[in-house]
Design a protein around this nucleic acid. Structure first.
Lengths: 202, 202
DNA sequence: TTGACAACCGGAACACTGTTCCGTTACGTT
DNA sequence: AACGTAACGGAACAGTGTTCCGGTTGTCAA
């Protein structure tokens, strides 16, 4: 039994697979040094291929970024339910999960910037992040609301949007200060006895 | 008595003054349409001058942006003390002032992005905003803390940094939602009976 | 093993950025 | 009116992303 579904493409040529792998490694290295905006030519040179080869394997930059960071985003998504089960409260789980997300973002130069960019080259990156992580965030948020810890009915997508934005330029003020701002945002979600209603009609 | 301090430059040539004015108007128009990243050639063409003329009058892009938005930032800075005097509480004044700041940012395409950018061309823009607005924000924050409304000792510079970041890409989620996120951040500052300590080593 | 063909490759070429530089223009002064 | 120079304008350069096509090579059938 073949390990591929019916009508699957007949497996790429050896050189193509080799180059794709080389490109992934070269891109990962380049991203660490120069951020996700590393020049195409640099990545091609590192991988020992021509620029055309990059565009054939990864039509947009987002495709390349997605391929490089796929595993890490998946593990972040998987951490959501686990944290919800292990944490003392849903809000604690939400906070911990968001810390995970922040840690991921701030260690990837330029990723947060790319995420909020409206550059069409990053559209699919944006979409992928949202598809993968927003539901997880939504679950955590819903649980926290059900537990009465969160009053505001903020859209999980907007919350993640805000957290992502706060991570932009984290290098300037430092990781700790960035986390502090994010904590402020998440703290703002909490329903407190004295919390003023920020909702339009409460 | 001349209306200029001693050793002042002997007043520029007429064509130079004319071109500078034309450039300011052209840049303002271009910024509205294409954001603060509008191509240099576009601005030059609108003003009917060569690109060299832009660089002579405004060595960096930040200089041009500062010149275009100077009045609006000044009026925002001036609003701080006024709001503090007129508002029912310091925290209300802080909230209102931040709304003013947000309104200014979200109506200028790309300004928030430029503000957080580490592009050296925008370094002086960043510095100018900070010099002009952070002290105002600091006064509001201090007053709110003195009134016992704010517990956290967040650096005003970091708060403005965060608010600015939240305004990035505001067009995507809309002005109202952006304001909501900002309100969440400011609400997180409030000291509430049930507020969890956001201490670093928590 | 050999040959043919499609998949694949590489990089030149293009379009578009910002930035610099210097020959030319024209303003203000004498 | 003549002159010195501040100011001008745009060609030229350097660095992006993106496309395209002639040459190469892996793969499979004969």
């Amino acid at each position: 039994m073949p390990t591929q579904e019916p009508s699957a493409p007949p497996r790429k040529r050896a050189d193509a697979r080799r180059n794709e792998q080389a490109l992934l490694e070269a891109a990962a290295a380049a991203f660490v040094e120069a951020g996700v905006d590393a020049p195409v030519r640099d990545i091609a040179r590192r991988a020992g291929v021509g620029v055309g080869t990059i565009y054939r394997h990864f039509p947009t930059r987002a495709d390349l970024v997605v391929a490089v960071y796929r595993h890490q985003v998946e593990s972040c998504a998987a951490a959501g339910p686990r944290l919800l089960a292990e944490s003392p409260s849903p809000h604690a789980a939400l906070t911990a999960w968001i810390h995970l997300f922040v840690d991921f973002l701030v260690t990837k130069h330029g990723l947060a910037e790319a995420l909020r960019s409206d550059d069409p080259a990053f559209a699919s990156l944006h979409e992928w992040f949202l598809d993968r992580l927003v539901p997880v965030c939504g679950d955590l948020l819903r649980a926290a609301r059900a537990a009465g810890e969160v009053g505001s009915d903020v859209d999980p997508q907007h919350l993640m949007f805000g957290v992502g934005n706060l991570c932009i330029g984290a290098a300037r003020i430092g990781r700790a200060e960035t986390l502090r701002l994010v904590d402020l945002l998440v703290a703002g979600l909490r329903v407190g006895p004295g919390t003023p209603p920020p909702a339009p009609s409460a």
